[in-house]
């Protein structure tokens, strides 16, 4: 992995559903890909093909036994497959951001603190973290009167923007995106597109799932399938 920020080699993922009679679901086999700094690679398979499973496997949310997930982290290369939990957490804290489709937060924690929490975990002092959190919330069009409220009661689109904010508030070298614009209006979509492009310009490696053709055209430097077929 000479230049790559992220390299996946021959990754396979099978789920064994013990609760349902031990059914085996083979979702991914032999997935290999690389993402270099400044690239935005978009996965173009249809729904159900395993794109989200791949992102979760890269992030360590799903347990992988076959293959490698190599991440450039703190001037070395870490294989997330088989890495001890503490190392995975350190990679997540400093190197690998992930915009998921679900917002899970402690109730009662204000939105601006949820977003600032990403930076706090990286050691940024509280005042600066909060200032940057507010700036990214403003860019994403979250009304200021909501910043001090918990996002638990927000609408779907607002929660999604909080999810985007808590990742893009930091300068992660690698960003995974799972449908970051799915339930957003045009203005919010544009704001997310701008954040992705800025991240790319500062050298972030982006791997994402985006179904919206227009957004895809605006952010992608490369479109490919899980199997490796490059698309136009």
């Amino acid at each position: 992995m000479s230049r790559a920020a992220l390299e996946v080699r021959a990754l396979a993922k099978t789920f064994t559903l013990h609760v349902q009679g031990g059914v085996e679901l083979r979702v991914l086999t032999g997935v290999s890909l690389t993402v270099e700094p400044g690239e935005c690679v978009i996965l173009a398979d249809p729904s159900g093909a395993g794109k989200s499973t791949l992102l979760r496997s890269i992030y360590g949310n799903y347990l992988v036994r076959d293959g490698q997930v190599l991440i450039r982290h703190r001037d070395r290369v870490v294989d997330m497959v088989g890495a001890p939990p503490r190392l995975v957490l350190d990679v997540r804290r400093h190197t690998l951001g992930y915009v998921s489709q679900f917002l899970r937060v402690i109730p009662r924690v204000p939105t601006e603190q949820v977003v600032a929490g990403t930076l706090r975990a990286q050691g940024v002092e509280p005042v600066a973290a909060l200032r940057r959190a507010r700036a990214v919330l403003a860019r994403l069009g979250i009304p200021e009167r909501l910043w001090t409220l918990s996002p638990v009661t927000f609408s779907g689109g607002e929660q999604q923007r909080v999810n985007v904010a808590r990742v893009f508030v930091a300068d992660y070298p690698i960003v995974l995106l799972d449908e970051p614009t799915a339930s957003l209006d045009a203005a919010s979509r544009l704001a997310v597109v701008e954040l992705i492009r800025e991240a790319r310009r500062r050298g972030a490696a982006v791997l994402g799932i985006v179904h919206d053709a227009q957004v895809r055209a605006e952010v992608a430097t490369r479109v490919r399938t899980l199997a490796g077929t490059e698309a136009a």
Binding site: H18, V19, R56, G60, N61, L63, P85, L89
Partner: peptide
């Protein structure tokens, strides 16, 4: 294991 991994992709029956 990692909390979210154990809860989202538990291995043991």
């Amino acid at each position: 294991g990692l909390t979210d991994q154990v809860l989202d992709d538990p291995q043991h029956p």
